[in-house]
């Protein structure tokens, strides 16, 4: 099975756009828990992007690590510190 590159790039472009939006949003939100969850979404979109770039092992790792475990780490930290950020 091969990929048709001409069909691919619009899809690719859409995911890249959403990745950048998620990255900016995760840094903009003042509530740290919201930021952590949006960052989980960012990781998951990144995982989609890597599946499409034929890196299935990397995507699998990112789905388990980035979208799963590191979100929990951020949430665990956010509950131990002041939840509201100044910027």
């Amino acid at each position: 099975m091969t990929w048709d590159a001409s069909l691919l790039w619009q899809f690719d472009f859409l995911i890249l756009l959403m990745v950048i939006i998620c990255a900016v949003a995760a840094l903009t939100f003042k509530d740290l828990i919201t930021s952590a969850v949006v960052f989980g979404a960012y990781s998951f979109l990144m995982c989609l992007l890597w599946t499409e770039m034929l890196a299935v092992d990397v995507a699998f790792t990112e789905a388990a690590v980035g979208a799963g475990v590191s979100t929990v780490f951020f949430l665990g930290t956010a509950l131990h510190i002041k939840r509201r950020a100044k910027d």
């Binding site: 990929w3 590159a5 995760a26 840094l27 740290l32 770039m53 034929l54 890196a55």
Partner: peptide, 28 residues
């Protein structure tokens, strides 16, 4: 914490660069 999120974004950008180098057109 925002700085740490920034660090993770920086890191995944570099990973994205490396993975996109490994891509070949017409490959599986």
């Amino acid at each position: 914490v925002k700085k740490v999120i920034g660090m993770s974004i920086f890191q995944s950008a570099i990973i994205l660069f490396y993975v996109s180098i490994g891509y070949k057109k017409g490959a599986t």
